[in-house]
Design a protein around this nucleic acid. Structure first.
Lengths: 220, 220
DNA sequence: AAATTAAATTAGATATATCTAAAAAAAATG
DNA sequence: CATTTTTTTTAGATATATCTAATTTAATTT
């Protein structure tokens, strides 16, 4: 039983919200995540339930099933592999890839994804630093902490961002805080939580707590 | 005014049928080309006419407009570029690419196609030997003739096939008559039109007129 | 616990895309 | 040229996916 593109998008949103730590996923949450109205979500939940990718009781709540989780992970796998392709092979900037990957993730061909994976040399992380599930849906994530929670003199590498809006990504690119950059915490201001960091051992950068909390660092 | 995926597919079919030499394109022809029913075609013709990509008069006939032609050519451009990608970069066999390219051709991103074109080094022909329209819709096609119309001792290169069904393509691969193969006509049997050719200066091959007429050769 | 507010669902519409069956128009045939 | 056949179109259904407005259920407040 195959999913339509709309169903795949809803399921991916539900998966992301489920993994996002929140105890339960509400109709309103889903509507907010995919820019639609709660009425449309209710409709879709019934359909997803019919296809057994979620368990759903009206007015009560929902839970993603194991098969639903696997389908969502495969969509995420495709999305992130295409992002690597766009950045590594087609010289896209990392803030330009999302919209196109949203389309490419729905192409149906397991051979294509196998070959693409090999062509890209089996990448484990996408350009935003998010882990790429393998063909069995397994995800190896690295322990990452927000930049504002690091201590003075600690070093690490920027591996991901929480807020991946185009505006935020452009801001980061502009100030030179790209994914992969090696950083060292030089100073932290106690009362407002802002931080000063050294990027690639040459450039110092000040940023607010707000910005720093959206940058995830792999400590080394 | 953008076209839906279904509209793009109909328009592409109409373009192919229009270019196919036939004087007029019938509802039944289109239904046959796209595997749908004539009633669905009538419906779609009305919609395509509303969007001014064809001119259409009920019971009378249709003609593709200039803007329709341009849109069709851009879809064909995308299809053929993706085919080159699949064969050159992802090691797909040339008889495995069609179905996937049918999906990829609908991805909307002009930047993507620009970059893909550059990445593939601006190819002029797809793996089946068909010309790739440029970004302005211009097509430079090579003069090609069916293999059965060549004369004895003439040499050339296989550049395309008329019948691109998977069965025919697999047959060609099996006997070693791939796209790009250099051939020489050794003999022609008058009464049944069958031909004997030399492939890559080492392998001789017999084929019926039926097969030979579906193989297009660039003479040299 | 009754009243209010918030969240979720249903009812009814709209748009796309398809189908079958019936009707209308054009083409072919005797 | 009237009749038959073929082609094309319309009418009416179905399925997906969405919306607004109304209703129902759950949660919160007093």
């Amino acid at each position: 039983m195959d999913l339509t593109i709309a169903e795949e998008n809803y399921l991916k949103a539900i998966y992301h919200l489920s993994e996002g730590g929140k105890k339960s996923v509400s109709t309103n949450d889903i509507a907010g995540e995919i820019q639609t109205k709660p009425a449309s979500v209710s409709d879709m939940l019934r359909r997803l339930s019919d296809k057994h990718v979620i368990q759903y009781k009206k007015y009560y709540g929902l839970q993603i099933t194991e098969s639903g989780k696997q389908l969502a992970l495969q969509t995420i796998r495709k999305h992130r592999l295409w992002e690597v392709f766009l950045v590594d092979k087609l010289q896209f900037a990392w803030d330009e890839v999302h919209e196109v990957a949203e389309q490419l993730e729905h192409i149906q061909s397991s051979l294509l994804i196998q070959r693409l994976d090999a062509f890209l040399n089996y990448p484990k992380f996408d350009p935003h630093g998010d882990p790429i599930p393998d063909e069995y849906g397994d995800v190896r994530s690295r322990p990452r902490i927000p930049l504002n929670e690091m201590n003075i003199d600690q070093v690490g590498q920027i591996v991901a961002v929480k807020d991946s809006s185009a505006a935020f990504l452009r801001y980061l690119d502009k100030v030179g805080a790209y994914i992969g950059a090696r950083i060292k915490v030089l100073d932290k201001v106690e009362f407002d939580g802002s931080v000063e960091i050294l990027v690639d051992q040459k450039k110092t950068l000040f940023m607010s707590k707000d910005v720093a909390s959206n940058i995830l660092v792999l400590q080394s």
